[in-house]
Simulated scan of single mutants.
Amino acid sequence: MKGVVISMIVVLAMIQFMVKPGQAISCGQVDASLAPCVPYLTGGGNPAPACCDGVKNIKGMAATTADRRAACNCVKDAANRYSNLKDDAAQALPAKCGVQMNIPISKSTNCDVIN
């Protein structure tokens, strides 16, 4: 099972590098960036450095309002796939990584109001 998860992460990371500049942010990019955060988001503690790198990556990719809204919807979809996601850990993730971000990590965010 671990091998399958690692393979999926590698594939998602490869997809991230295949997207041409100027294209909208994709859920594959967001999922690949947040994959290292799953242990923190479901178990608490402190996020791994790779997780914080992913959060910073998302912030860098989400340069426009449309990108931030797309990333928000991807994050929301990803959050809803994990029934054991700790909402308080998710909301604290950007701050724990030292990143100020306008994209909340939550199952219930209204992404249409993101600027």
Rank of each mutant, 00 (worst) to 15 (best):
M61C: 07
K107C: 11
D67Y: 01
P39V: 10
Y40T: 07
C51L: 06
P49Y: 04
Q29M: 12
V99H: 00
D112H: 07
S83M: 07
Q91P: 00
D112Y: 05
V113M: 10
K107D: 09
D88V: 07
V55I: 08
M61T: 08
M8A: 15
P94W: 07
I103W: 02
A13H: 08
V55G: 00
V19F: 11
L93C: 03
N80H: 04
P21I: 05
C74Q: 07
N102F: 03
S83Q: 11
P104G: 08
R68I: 04
N73G: 14
D53L: 09
A48K: 10
I103Q: 01
C51S: 06
A89W: 06
A13R: 10
I25C: 11
V30F: 06
G43R: 15
N115F: 08
N102L: 12
I58F: 03
G44Q: 13
Y40V: 06
M61R: 14
I103A: 01
C97D: 00
P21D: 05
S108G: 07
I105R: 04
K86D: 10
A62N: 06
A32C: 04
M1N: 09
L85R: 03
M14S: 13
D77N: 14
A70N: 10
C72L: 09
A63I: 03
A78M: 12
S108D: 13
A78Y: 03
S83A: 12
A92V: 08
C97V: 01
V38R: 03
N102W: 01
V113W: 00
G43N: 15
V30K: 03
G43I: 12
D77A: 15
A35N: 02
K96T: 06
N46S: 14
N46V: 11
N115S: 13
Q16H: 14
P47V: 04
P49C: 06
D67A: 04
S106K: 10
C52N: 01
V113F: 08
G22E: 04
C37S: 02
C72Q: 08
C72W: 08
M1K: 11
T65W: 00
V30C: 05
A35M: 09
M101Q: 05
G44T: 13
M8Q: 13
I58W: 01
S106N: 09
V5F: 11
A71S: 13
L12K: 03
D67G: 02
V11W: 09
Q100G: 06
G28Y: 01
